[in-house]
Simulated scan of single mutants.
Amino acid sequence: MADKAREEDAIRGVMERLKNAFSAAHGPAEVEAAVAKTHASFTDRPVREFVPMLVERKARSILNNHPADEA
Rank of each mutant, 00 (worst) to 15 (best):
S61G: 14
K58T: 11
F50N: 07
T38Q: 03
N65Q: 15
V14K: 03
E7N: 05
R6P: 00
R48F: 02
V31I: 10
E56F: 05
H66T: 14
A40K: 15
A71H: 00
A36P: 00
G13F: 07
D69C: 07
R57I: 09
G13K: 10
V55N: 01
S23N: 09
E7I: 14
H39Y: 15
D44G: 15
L63M: 05
K4P: 00
A24E: 13
D44R: 07
N65D: 14
M15G: 02
N20Q: 10
A71K: 02
A33L: 12
G27H: 12
A68H: 11
R17M: 06
V31E: 04
A25C: 02
P52R: 01
L18Y: 06
E70A: 14
A24P: 00
F42K: 05
A25E: 14
G27E: 13
L18K: 03
A71M: 02
E56Y: 05
H66A: 09
L18D: 01
G27F: 05
I11D: 02
M1K: 06
K37C: 04
R6G: 01
L54C: 07
A10K: 11
E70N: 04
V51H: 04
F22S: 02
V55Y: 03
A36H: 03
M53C: 01
N64Q: 15
A68Y: 09
I62L: 14
E8L: 12
K19Y: 00
S41K: 10
R57T: 10
V51T: 11
P46C: 00
R48S: 11
I11G: 04
H66G: 00
H66F: 06
E49S: 13
S61D: 15
K4M: 08
D69N: 11
R17S: 09
P52C: 05
A71L: 03
A68E: 13
E7W: 01
A68G: 12
K19I: 08
R60S: 13
M53D: 04
K37I: 05
A59P: 07
T43M: 01
A33H: 09
E16Y: 06
P52N: 07
V51C: 04
K58F: 04
P67W: 02
P28G: 14
N20L: 10
H26S: 07
P52I: 06
E30R: 12
K58S: 08
N65R: 11
S23A: 12
K58R: 14
F50G: 00
T38C: 12
I62M: 09
A25M: 08
E8K: 13
N20K: 14
L54A: 09
A10S: 11
R17T: 02
T43F: 02
T43R: 13
A40E: 14
T43G: 01
H26E: 08
S41R: 12
E7A: 10
M15Q: 12
R57Y: 06
I11K: 01
A24Q: 11
R60T: 15
N64T: 08
A29H: 13
A25K: 13
A59I: 06
K37W: 08
S41M: 10
P52A: 05
H39M: 05
A71W: 02
A33S: 13
T38R: 01
F50E: 10
M15S: 13
R12Y: 03
V47Y: 08
H26W: 10
